[in-house]
Write a protein that binds this DNA or RNA. Structure first.
Lengths: 220, 220
DNA sequence: AATGTCAATATTGTTCAACAATATTTCCGT
DNA sequence: ACGGAAATATTGTTGAACAATATTGACATT
């Protein structure tokens, strides 16, 4: 189950591990990542670590300041707004041209089920996770490897923002039913309605997110 | 005028230089890029070069095979199809929500002018260049930094495919007038028509591209 | 106490040399 | 011509080194 990516180069594996730390919130936004400390921690050379840092910087998860080192990116309102702009473009676009027998719809439907169950059990983390799966599946409707990869990056960046919030998982809960509606609309071959519903969803989610972000103390 | 990006880290500057070689066709698809040869050529260490290679690999311009090295990516029909899928999503999406006073429209209009002039002078390279500017400006209509950056990557990848063709620039020429039409539709606040026109454009361009690619001998 | 200066220290940026692991080529016997 | 083993070259990764830049701390001045 735990695919470690053994064949991949060290830097890629490293990047993956650090990414996991980032989205799980074990590294806080703004925190400085010392090359010496991390190469020690992961027991790799500084050179290999630097390659990994570069990848994550390109993904927008780390920020690089010349001669000062790399820092965990600090999500801003601007970045959240931009990310939701991207999501509207990609997710609504994918839905609009969706075809009702597409295999990804099965994944969407399963994610809705998982989300509902998790919500009923009060498992907020599970709700969030099911939500991620749902929206990734929506992107898969477009059948584009490049869009899927790009969305992964955007999604990781958004999770960084969620990490700032004190009570992040509750945000997802109200959206389980909207996912259900969207899935149903696609299944019924009403792609335009599905896209419209997704736009409503994303606008609401964006507002909720920004509102929650507003009352986060420091952006330092 | 020649912004060398002096403040940037060496690896980034290197990546930029190599990228220029790639899209200008000085490095052919499939070609192997020896670490030793290139670190010699650019007078940098192997480590720095490897960092640059990693960035370009992430951009899809290079391919990395374990213990065998990096190669210039060989564009396939599949990649062209995927890229045009992305372009339809992004460019049509950007047009659909375009607002007639957006500053990017000025850039689009200027690009149309440049393209027309270049075409009339038989400057096919200029036509292609103007075309690039036009479509990048279309993306800018979305006001998303992340989409702009993503499109840059996609665009570079597509240029790699053009490099395979024997007579690449002629492909752009017929599209100058379509760009004009699209710009006009946006100016007249008919974003849906503009998007529809763009879809026609992209479908046609994709077919043309695939047809031209079909008669390229080796894909080795 | 607050501030500015300058040396001492730590960190990043980059290079180089080394070696293990893996590919590629060369050579040789059949 | 062919298969296979030895020789060679390349990548993967490490460690140390040093220059350039940033941070810290001590000290003197106001």
């Amino acid at each position: 189950m735990t695919e470690d990516g053994d064949g991949l180069p060290l830097a890629d594996r490293l990047a993956r591990r650090i990414r996991a730390l980032l989205i799980s919130g074990e590294l806080s936004p703004g925190q400085r990542l010392s090359e010496a400390a991390f190469s020690e921690r992961f027991d790799v050379s500084r050179n290999s670590l630097r390659e990994a840092f570069r990848l994550l910087t390109k993904d927008g998860l780390l920020r690089h300041e010349a001669n000062r080192g790399v820092f965990v990116a600090v999500p801003s309102m601007a970045s959240v707004i931009d990310i939701y702009r991207v999501r509207r473009m990609l997710e609504c676009g994918a839905l609009r041209q969706a075809w009702p027998q597409h295999p990804a719809i099965r994944v969407m439907r399963e994610a809705v089920g998982k989300g509902r169950q998790a919500r009923d059990e009060g498992d907020w983390r599970g709700v969030g996770s099911a939500n991620m799966i749902f929206h990734a599946a929506v992107i898969d409707l477009s059948d584009s490897a490049r869009l899927t990869e790009f969305y992964e990056r955007i999604s990781a960046e958004l999770r960084l923002s969620f990490g700032l919030l004190n009570d992040p998982e509750h945000l997802h809960a109200p959206f389980v039913d909207m996912n259900d509606t969207i899935a149903t609309l696609v299944e019924e071959d009403r792609p335009l309605d599905a896209a419209a519903q997704m736009e409503t969803y994303l606008n609401l989610a964006e507002r909720t997110m920004l509102k929650a972000l507003e009352r986060v103390p420091q952006h330092a």
